[in-house]
């Protein structure tokens, strides 16, 4: 590669173009969709699939089980953000669960430090996580509004997401022998955590959900809305066999919150 200035140029432009386009897409998403939206009727979901027979049937069935949907921003953090929002929201009405979860959350920091996470960076995320969690313990009538506002303020919301990512990573590393079987390729669990769990905006898969729901002992039911054969959006419960506390809707690479009837 020596003399062709034109080639240099095209090489450069390619990188620039890809990244510029990526930033534009991110910006579009940021400006148009709230981190966590308002509660909507499930009929808004039906309206999205009027001309698609497979999805239409599944959404119809979904509407017999769920009354509302709350959308989250599709930024790769949606599972973690939806999980935290839905669970904190449920704690507003269940004070005894709030108290026991508060203790689990306090203890979780010690557990992560004992697993080798640096206390130093962990602390900020844990502190902010606890601060937002504390809102779910408030008795005031506007506690829900406050929670909603916190989840739509990146200064709080993303700190909560990071902390949940670290908790999932901690769980995976603690039970590495078990989770190793679910990792594709020849990555170790630690490598997988560093590449797919801890970085922000990295999308979540089954393994993230199993790890987080196990770490916090919170049952999650995920409804899968996809092109698979069947006339309903199939449910998967995590950890397997538990009673779900929160319900999420999965559509290829995205999670929203569902509210049962």
């Amino acid at each position: 590669m020596g003399d062709s200035g034109g080639e240099f140029e095209s090489g450069k432009n390619q990188d620039d173009l890809i990244m510029q386009r990526q930033r534009e897409i991110e910006k579009e998403i940021n400006e148009s969709i709230m981190l966590v939206g308002d509660k909507e009727s499930l009929s808004t979901l039906e309206a999205e699939y009027l001309s698609d027979e497979i999805y239409k049937l599944k959404v119809k069935d979904l509407a017999t089980k769920y009354k509302n949907i709350r959308r989250t921003r599709p930024d790769g953090n949606c599972f973690f953000r939806a999980f935290a929002y839905a669970y904190f929201e449920s704690l507003l009405d269940h004070k005894e669960d709030y108290n026991s979860f508060y203790n689990i959350a306090v203890e979780s920091k010690k557990k992560l430090i004992s697993l080798g996470f640096p206390q130093f960076t962990l602390e900020d995320f844990h502190d902010t996580f606890m601060e937002v969690l504390a809102i779910a313990g408030k008795e005031e009538p506007n506690a829900h509004d406050e929670l909603h506002a916190a989840f739509n303020n990146q200064g709080y919301s993303n700190y909560v997401v990071v902390y949940l990512r670290l908790l999932a990573s901690g769980q995976l590393q603690q039970d590495a022998d078990f989770y190793q079987h679910f990792i594709e390729g020849d990555r170790t669990i630690t490598e997988f955590c560093h590449q797919e769990v801890e970085p922000m905006f990295r999308e979540s898969d089954h393994i993230h959900i199993i790890a987080l729901s196990t770490a916090l002992n919170v049952g999650v039911r995920v409804r899968y809305l996809d092109r698979g054969e069947s006339t309903e959006a199939i449910a998967h419960d995590f950890p397997e066999g538990t009673q779900p506390t929160i319900h999420l809707l999965y559509r290829p690479s995205h999670y929203d919150i569902l509210y049962p009837i």
Partner: peptide, 16 residues
């Protein structure tokens, strides 16, 4: 170095 771009995590630090 991958941790300086795509594998960066907010739990990393100047030290790491």
């Amino acid at each position: 170095l991958s941790i300086l771009t795509e594998d960066w995590s907010p739990a990393l630090s100047v030290q790491s």
